[in-house]
Amino acid sequence: MEERIFGTECEYALFHQLPPPSAQGSGKTAKWSGTSFSENLQEMSHLLVCALRGQNRPLAGEFLANGGRFYIDRGSHPEYATPECRSVADVIAHEKAGDRLVQKLVEEAGGLMAEKDIPGRLHAFKNNHDPRGNTYGSHENYLVSPRAMEKIQQIIPFLITRQIFAGAGKIPHLAPPAFSGEDWLPFAVSQRADFVEHVLSDRASDARGIINTRKREITRSGDNVRLHVILGDSNMSEYALKLKIGTTALVLRMIEDGLGDIPAFLQPVQALKVISRRPAGVHAVEGAGSGHTALEVQSIYLEKALGYFSSHAATGEEKAVLCLWETTLSGLKNLRISPSGVIEDDPGELSRKLDWVIKAWLLNRAREKKNLDWSDPHIKHLDFRYHDLDPETGLFERCASLGLVDRVIEEEAILLAMEAPPHNTRARLRGGIIGEAWGKDVEVLVENWESIRIIAKSKVDGMHPFARQRRSVNGLKANLNDPFEGCNEALLKRVRRFLDKCDEV
């Protein structure tokens, strides 16, 4: 499949930071106790929804005029789903737009907190676990052909090992005694690896799989289906995000065309967890006596990709991702990290590019200056601050503003994505209809990704042409079955005609 639809879904953690009790009035302390990721969350997430509704931004329920969706998920986590995108660049722009939108809502919720006399400050963290061991996801969606789904096991070794460039890094809660010795890192490369228990699973909040098999009809584009990948970490780095989405799409394209033999891990879930703590370790694979490291497995996929694209046409974006992949694996080959977690040699400058390496570099800098151990709560606190979306208090955001991390898209693309949908998917129709209907005497209902309904608040004249066709005098339903369809002037004309009619009433 040379044309593909992509999208991501990011859950964020809300963190209510209170001033010390001595700085609070006596009446407030009783209700708002303890700085927390898990207390007061329902109220805090409700404030975000209030802030969104107060923005006068075109909305239809949870859907926005940029085609994306913002809502509060299980556990009171705010979640942003990007609109359907047709390029990796669009996915990056729209995921980062989601980050900006959430941060904007947090800032506006701060104003509502002041009005309600709620002390403290609200923060949104884009990561995958809180200090109490709860996890929340960063999910990826790829439109794939039935042929790829039949052979989906071929992507598993790739997904297990891509954490060496896509991991966000974390200081683990507890270091199991067995996790020590040569090659073991004092930190984990992946945030989500500890929470995955199966290769395939239809569960999302427990017994998680690398791939989620729960069927949700979000596409009826031919026979193509959605591949829902849930083992990934949330990326702050645009570079790591581009690699994660771009390389996964390359591997899917090869699987659809016939990838050939790929060595499968004998114990895939264990390999996923151990690679996170010991990325240079060797793991048993079928048919290879000596086993493979994560880097070797990635190199096998890269070699296949280089061979594949020597005989298949590649888009400009695919060529760029291929080049990035090759450069990054070379950088990882030459990256030297001491057993105490100090980066000794980084000729590929991965500490500007990959989240887990950037974070290791930052935490080491703080450890050395303050003579702190990896388990010190100050260091754990900085680990979380890396993911804070607030430009005033977020560690990654500060690195970005100082020019200490590499970017792969222009800021203008992110600002545009906050307002406008991608131009070449059905998100354009959804966003266009939401925008056109905003401020009119109608209610717009987007019950799913495939359709949108406009209901007139006042009864519309039953004699206009549309009403006769649909035998409905106060509603219009637009089906968005084809995710590739970004241009449907006939549909938009019908919508405008209906809205004009509503305005006449």
């Binding site: 303890g34 700085t35 927390s36 200090p131 709560p377 606190h381 208090t393 560690l395 020019g403």
Partner: peptide, 28 residues
Amino acid sequence: DKKKQLQQLDNFIEGVLQEALEEFKQVE
């Protein structure tokens, strides 16, 4: 220049550390 950037980063980290921990100790 790089030196100035790193100095600004160190100042920022210092500020974050000073501003702060029970939440991060409980796990132990």
